[in-house]
Amino acid sequence: MSEYAIEVYDLVKKFNDLTAVDGITLKISKGEIFGLLGPNGAGKSTTINILLHLLEPTSGKALVGGYDIVKHSREVKKLIGLVPQETVVEPELTAEANLRLFGRLYELPEDEIERKISELLKLAELSEFRYKLAGTFSGGMQRRLAVVKALIHDPSILILDEPTVGLDVQNRTALWNLLKKINRERGVTILLTTQYLEEADMLCNRIAIIDHGKIKALGTPAQLKQSISKGFIIEIFAEQKYTKDIIALIKRKFRLESSVSGDRITVNVSEDPVDFLGKVSSELEKEKLPIVSISMHMPTLDDVFLKITGSSIRDTANNEVVSPTMRLRGR
C-alpha cells in the first residue's frame, strides 16, 4: 500500500473542446481532511467522478490506496465511500433499508449489515428514526444518513462533494462535527469539495484552491493566508470613477501597493497598523475622495482566492444560491 490515500498526477479531462480538469497533481496523505475549494464549474465534481471511474480521464493518472483508478476501479470503489453533490437517499425506503441496500451492494454478510446499521444510525444520531422513511427526513437528517450510508463498507477514504450546500447553520455545524468525528475516531481520510471558504477554513487540514480546472494554490489554511499578507488587509469600497485616484493616493502617502477588483480596493499592510485605518480615512477626506466603506481584517481565504484568480469566490459562485449567512464577510 502506498503512503498516500490519493495520488493524482497531471490529470486532464476534456469534454469536447472544454477542458474541465486541466493537469491537476495532488497527493493526499492518509488521515487528512483535504479540501478542494473552488467556484462553480471549477472542475471539482469532474475530478471526483474520475477518481470513482464514473468518467474516463482524458490523460494523466490517479491512484487510490495505491490502486490505479482505471485498471483497478473495483478495488478503488471498495476503498472509497462517496457522498455525491446531489445528496441522495432512497426516499421511499426506511433509514435501515437504505443502509441494508448498500450493505448488500458492497456484498457484506447479512449479520454484519445488521450490526453496521445500528452502529451507523447511532453515529448519525438517527437511531430513533430507524424505521422511518428517509423521504420524511429534514435536509440535515438526509445528509447525515447519506454520509453514514457511504461508511457501510468501512471505507478508508470518504469523499464528499459539496456536503453542506443548502444546509442551515445548525445543520452545517452538526455535519462538520460528524465529519471531524469520523476522521478522528475511525481514521478515515476525507476529501471534500466546497465553495464555502469558512468550511474549508474550519474543517480542512489542507486546501487546494482550484479554478478553471487548475490548482492555483495548495497548503494549510494558515499557510495560504500568510502567503497573502503577514499582517492585515485594508478593504475600501468606492465608486469606480474614484478608485484610480485612491490607489494613487495610497501609493504616494503610504508607499503601499493596492489591487482593485471592480469597486473594491485591497491593500496589504504588514506593519503594526495602529490607527492606520484612521490615517487613511483622513487622507482620503483631505483629498475629497469619497468612499463607500473602509475596513480592515486579517487575511481570509477569500483574499487568497481574490489574489489568485482576480475575482472573489463569492462573485464567481453566482450560479449557486448561497445562503445569506454565507454571504456575510468572513472573520
Binding site: L52, L54, R74, K77, K78, I80, L82, P84, Q85, E86, V88, E90, F102, L105, Y106, E107, K149
Partner: peptide, 13 residues
C-alpha cells in the same frame, strides 16, 4: 435524474 443511479455506480457492483 435524481442521482440514485450514481450512488449505485460507485459501489463495486
Amino acid at each position: 435524474q435524481f442521482g440514485n443511479l450514481k450512488t449505485f455506480l460507485v459501489t463495486p457492483i
